[in-house]
């Protein structure tokens, strides 16, 4: 993805897209599927232009993007801090582990109605769902990473009379970065899910609201446009993480830079 595809591979990928769009455009009509069930791409495009002009599509996209970014940043930060703290306090983790597990198993999106009841039809409940859903993969990855740091590396630093803080700063923290970024990649896509569910539940803001609005209108094309834009936001968020990861983990062998 993103600059990795080259030459013939890129051409082949593009061909798949073109074939898919062509099939979507003409096959449903041939099969007698009506437009209100499966609108063709041309119809979706028209709807996209209409929504840009009349439905404040960019405003809603902006709200959703902002919620995704804020939710992702807050949730990741919280996950990183708690992950490191629990990673370095094995006893605290043992005490808390049943509750952490329970919270991890609980479907986070189910909290959305609760947050809407607490915080009203604002952007805050959406951000909160994103924070909650982003928190766990990040925290678990950081926690596991701190736990699995090679004890000999820690001993090496200790043999040079390193303080606890130096061991963290020079060994544990940098050793956790690669797993942290795998957690952040997952978190980037989860953040979009959290925000959309929050928007579906209540309020009149964001792409999730446009989804329910389009559904209420029986406007299938509108739903398609919204899904595509949500996917786009997800891709941008994911690519952003990958971009930062490449800069931070520049020392990693290229083979470990699997993009997907």
């Amino acid at each position: 993805m993103l600059g990795v595809l080259r030459g013939s591979t890129a051409t082949a990928s593009l061909a798949v897209l073109v074939a898919f769009l062509a099939a979507w455009e003409w096959l449903p009509a041939l099969a007698g599927i009506p437009e209100f069930i499966l609108p063709p791409p041309s119809r979706v495009w028209q709807e996209f232009l209409r929504m840009s002009a009349n439905e404040r599509l960019w405003y809603h996209s902006g709200i959703t993007s902002m919620e995704v970014v804020v939710g992702f940043l807050l949730g990741s930060l919280l996950g990183i801090v708690i992950g490191f703290v629990l990673g370095m306090a094995p006893r605290a983790e043992l005490v808390l582990s049943p509750y952490i597990l329970a919270l991890q198993i609980a479907p986070k999106v189910a909290f959305a109605p609760l947050f809407v009841m607490w915080l009203g039809y604002t952007v805050y409940p959406k951000i909160l769902v994103a924070v909650l859903i982003v928190f766990f993969p990040v925290m678990v990855n950081v926690l596991t990473a701190v736990r699995t740091v090679d004890p000999d590396m820690v001993n090496l630093a200790r043999s040079f009379s390193a303080t606890r803080w130096q061991v963290f700063r020079m060994i544990e923290y940098p050793a956790s970065l690669a797993p942290l970024f795998s957690g952040l990649r997952i978190a980037a896509t989860l953040a979009v899910i959290g925000v959309v569910v929050g928007e579906l539940v209540g309020g009149n803001l964001g792409l999730g609201y446009l989804l329910t609005y389009g559904e209420g209108q029986g406007n299938t094309a509108m739903v398609f446009v919204t899904i595509i834009l949500l996917t786009f936001i997800g891709i941008v968020a994911y690519a952003g993480v990958v971009l930062v990861e490449r800069r931070v983990l520049h020392y990693m062998p290229k083979a470990q830079h699997a993009t997907v």
């Binding site: 090679d150 000999d152 590396m153 090496l156 630093a157 043999s159 040079f160 009379s161 390193a162 130096q166 020079m170 060994i171 940098p174 050793a175 970065l177 983990l249 020392y251 990693m252």
Partner: peptide, 27 residues
């Protein structure tokens, strides 16, 4: 006292020079 193991224990995020400096940096 300094030790050296079978595993080189070089830190992958440090260049070779930075790895060689580890002990001095800690001190």
């Amino acid at each position: 006292v300094a030790f050296m193991l079978q595993k080189d224990l070089l830190l992958p995020w440090r260049s070779i020079r930075e790895n060689a400096e580890l002990g001095l940096e800690i001190r």
